[in-house]
């Protein structure tokens, strides 16, 4: 039974991810007095891309072909480690938060290589910027996990969530509130949102993610876009489930599971709303201001840890 539930979780993350993108797009459209896409449009887009033929650059090598699979596979493997609507995950046992970070790094590694593979200036630009930003974001993410792990005395994602859920809410708020801020900033950075990257632009001055996938088309593009959406949902799920871990059942029972599913949808909607709100109200930062932004995440995570040290663990 738990197996079915775990598999369902994975399917849920993969299936729900485009909807989150839709939500933010729609929110942005409404704020600009546009109608915005229909709900199913995001899914139709993906399906269409999966069916379309591909044009591959003549310069590209096998790295270009492998990258979408590795990127998607790495993201899915990371998704399988995350508890979503119950306290377990299909592959939560296979590693810890460090593995989660490095699985995402694996996908990124191949994606940036593929961007260099076609020999265009756009690809190089996107690749260089992505690595620049991620090499600052990655230590901050690790530090956030360490800071939470210091409180929970475990680094496994499922373990962290269970410990936090068993704790009383006011202690969770105190101990991890700053880490929450850090992860929020990182969620924005990792999913390529304003103010770090503009997902709606095709202007070379501002592109990061879009510049990397510029040469992709058809099926590969679908895999990359979908993978990117899943990655975005992963970070939102981290925000929702690590920092608001209540109401998630640990055994299989129909009613709590359905309730938890609704709760999850609600939490993700709120998180997506926050991301969308920031996207509407802020301008994209200059590339060399982004390190300042990421430094804030790093410092928040460090403060969260230092605060726990000052008060004493478990006080």
């Amino acid at each position: 039974m738990t197996l079915i539930l775990s598999v369902f979780q994975a399917v849920l993350i993969a299936g729900f991810a485009p909807a989150v993108s839709w939500f933010i797009k729609k929110m942005k459209a409404v704020s600009q007095n546009r109608v915005g896409p229909r709900f199913f449009q995001v899914y139709f887009d993906l399906i269409k891309l999966f069916r379309k033929g591909m044009v591959i650059s003549g310069t590209a090598s096998w790295v270009f072909h492998a990258a979408p699979y590795v990127f998607f596979g790495g993201t899915i493997a990371a998704a399988l480690m995350l508890p979503v609507i119950w306290k377990g995950a299909l592959c939560g046992f296979m590693g810890d938060a460090i593995l989660f970070v490095y699985l995402l790094a694996l996908g990124r590694f191949f994606l940036v290589l593929a961007a260099l593979d076609t020999g265009t200036a756009f690809g190089g630009m996107g690749s260089s910027r992505e690595m620049f930003l991620s090499s600052l974001a990655e230590p901050a993410l690790l530090l956030s996990f360490f800071s939470i792990g210091f409180h929970t005395k475990t680094l496994s994602l499922t373990g962290m969530m269970s410990v936090l859920a068993a704790d009383s809410p006011h202690r969770v708020i105190f101990f991890v509130s700053l880490a929450f801020g850090a992860v929020l900033i990182l969620a924005i950075a990792e999913s390529g949102r304003i103010p770090v990257d503009n997902p709606a632009t095709h202007l070379e001055l501002t592109m990061v993610h879009e510049a990397m996938v510029l040469e992709y088309s058809g099926r590969y593009l679908a895999l990359l876009e979908w993978g990117h959406q899943i990655k975005q949902l992963l970070f939102l799920t981290l925000l929702a489930n690590l920092f608001f871990p209540w109401g998630i059942p640990d055994t299989f029972n129909a009613v709590p599971i359905v309730l938890s599913l609704l709760l999850y949808a609600g939490k993700i909607a709120v998180a997506a709303w926050v991301i969308g709100w920031i996207e509407i109200h802020f301008a994209k930062l200059r590339l060399f201001r982004v390190p300042d932004f990421l430094a804030v995440a790093f410092v928040l995570a460090l403060l969260s840890f230092l605060g726990q040290l000052m008060v004493g663990r478990g006080a």
Partner: peptide
């Protein structure tokens, strides 16, 4: 009474964040 220490810790942290905000 359980809430007050936690709240105080929390505001202490927020105080730090606010001071960092002055520089950031």
């Amino acid at each position: 009474s359980e809430w007050i220490p936690s709240l105080v810790h929390f505001f202490g942290m927020m105080l730090l964040v606010a001071s960092f905000g002055i520089i950031a």
